[in-house]
Structure formats: structure tokens, C-alpha cells
């Protein structure tokens, strides 16, 4: 079944190499996209709980826009529409970026900003779940609002939401496949190319599927490790996000 991977394509490379090159783009998108999503998500999530009406409203607007437009549509907006909206010179430059980059950057921005909206909602939920007394105690000590957020509120909120952030990490990783629609040769696109070149549809997509699953497992275990690493001594452990399939491979009896 997997012998297709060890045949050579028209460019003389093994199909395995095609898949691995696709995997490289998938990982680059997921990894860099995640840090963009995390950075924007924390800022917007904190903004959602701001006492300033303007900041709160702007943050809300961000979340509603990026969370409610389908990812595929957003992908097209970044790729096809954005260059038209930019000043002519800049737009042309963007359109003429050499092949992988011309699709990679729009895909990166798309996934980063979309996932950021989802992260922001988790961050907001985490902040709102903290006991009121935490902010009061910080204020009573004379800490500024900014310091209160930076040293007291956000560090606790982030720890609280590690299980739901795990889902978002999985989410951005799976959504990378949408980038094939704008021509980025990531893992799914490479599987499709192999299938088209060899007519071994099953072997090609089965290989891609297995790679996706294995990596999801790695990501999940990584998040469990991060959860344990940042666990606050003397408090009860957080519940891992419910993932029945991964539960089988992961910690047993975790409830």
C-alpha cells in the first residue's frame, strides 16, 4: 500500500520526499501561525475585558469578524482580495511574490488571525473565571491595572485555559489543509498530487492521514506536558480537554 512512497515522481524525487516537503509547509504554517494567533489572541482577549469601552468594543469587533467568516472565505480574501485593496505598487509586489511565499504568507495571516479570534474568546473566558478577589487584592496593593493584568490576571487565566488552547492548537494544525485552495503545496496538496500522478489514491491519502494523526498525538502530548509544567503547586490538576480518541493513547483514566 505504501510502496507508492518509494516510487519516483516526474522530478526524480521520491513521493515520500513530496509528502515530507508538504509536511514541512504544514508544520511551518501551524507553528508560526500558532504564535501569531497566541500573541494576538491574548491581546484581544485581554482587550475584551478592558474597562475602556472603546478597547472592549474594538476587541469584540475583531472576534466577531474573524470568528464568523468561514476560514475558506478568509483564505480567499487574504489571497485574492487583499492585494487589490493595497496601493497599486504594493499590491503588484504581493502578487508577484515567488511561488511558495505568495501563497504561504496569505495562508499564515489567514490562519493566525482566524485562530487568534478563537484564542481571544478562550482568554476572555479564562479571565472572567478568575475570582474577583484576585483583581481586588492587586488593586489594594497599589498595582496599576496594566501590572495587575500582566502579573496577576493573565498568567492565571492562561493556565486555566491550557486544555481549551490544546483544542485550538489542534484546530490550526488541521486548518492548514485549507491553504491548498490557494495553491500552497502543504501535506494534503502533496497527497493529492501523488494520487493524481500515480492513481494510488488510497496509499497517498492514507499516508497523509497517518502523518496528521501522529502529529496530532505529538501535539496533544506536548500540551499535556505544558499543562503539567505550568501546574500551580498546591492546586488541583486541570482537566485535559476531552479528546476520546487521543484519550486512548494519552493518560488513562484522566477525567
Amino acid at each position: 500500500m505504501f510502496d507508492v512512497l518509494f516510487q519516483r515522481g516526474f522530478d526524480g524525487r521520491l513521493y515520500l520526499e513530496w509528502l515530507l516537503s508538504g509536511l514541512g509547509w504544514t508544520l511551518a504554517l501551524a507553528f508560526i501561525g500558532w504564535w501569531i494567533a497566541f500573541a494576538i489572541g491574548v491581546l484581544v482577549g485581554v482587550g475584551r475585558t478592558s474597562k475602556s469601552r472603546v478597547i472592549a468594543a474594538l476587541s469584540r469587533l475583531y472576534v466577531e469578524i474573524f470568528r464568523n467568516i468561514p476560514v475558506l472565505v478568509q483564505m480567499f480574501l487574504w489571497y485574492f482580495v487583499l492585494p487589490e485593496l493595497l496601493p497599486t505598487g504594493l499590491g503588484t509586489w504581493v502578487k508577484q511574490l515567488p511561488p511558495p511565499w505568495g501563497a504561504f504568507f496569505p495562508a499564515l495571516l489567514c490562519l493566525g488571525t482566524y485562530t487568534a479570534a478563537r484564542v481571544a474568546e478562550q482568554v476572555r473566558a479564562g479571565i472572567e473565571a478568575l475570582p474577583q478577589g484576585q483583581e481586588e487584592a492587586a488593586a489594594a496593593l497599589g498595582l496599576s491595572q496594566l501590572d495587575t493584568r500582566r502579573f496577576v490576571v493573565v498568567p492565571q487565566a492562561l493556565r486555566l485555559i491550557i486544555p481549551s488552547l490544546t483544542s485550538e492548537v489542534m484546530g490550526i494544525y488541521k486548518n492548514t489543509s485549507v491553504a491548498l485552495t490557494i495553491g500552497l503545496l502543504e501535506l494534503t496538496a502533496q497527497a493529492r498530487q501523488i494520487s493524481e500522478n500515480t492513481f494510488q489514491t488510497f496509499g497517498a491519502f492514507a499516508s497523509a492521514t497517518i502523518i496528521y494523526l501522529l502529529l496530532a498525538l505529538v501535539a496533544y502530548r506536548l500540551m499535556l506536558w505544558i499543562d503539567a509544567k505550568y501546574h500551580i503547586p498546591g492546586t488541583s490538576p486541570s482537566k485535559p480537554a476531552r479528546k476520546p480518541l487521543f484519550g486512548l493513547f494519552g493518560k488513562r483514566g484522566a477525567a
Partner: peptide, 10 residues
């Protein structure tokens, strides 16, 4: 000083 301590647990 509060009834519920309000120490920063982290």
C-alpha cells in the same frame, strides 16, 4: 487583608 486571603496562587 481579606476574608478569603486572596493570595496570588501562581
Amino acid at each position: 487583608v481579606f476574608q478569603s486571603f486572596n493570595l496570588f496562587p501562581h
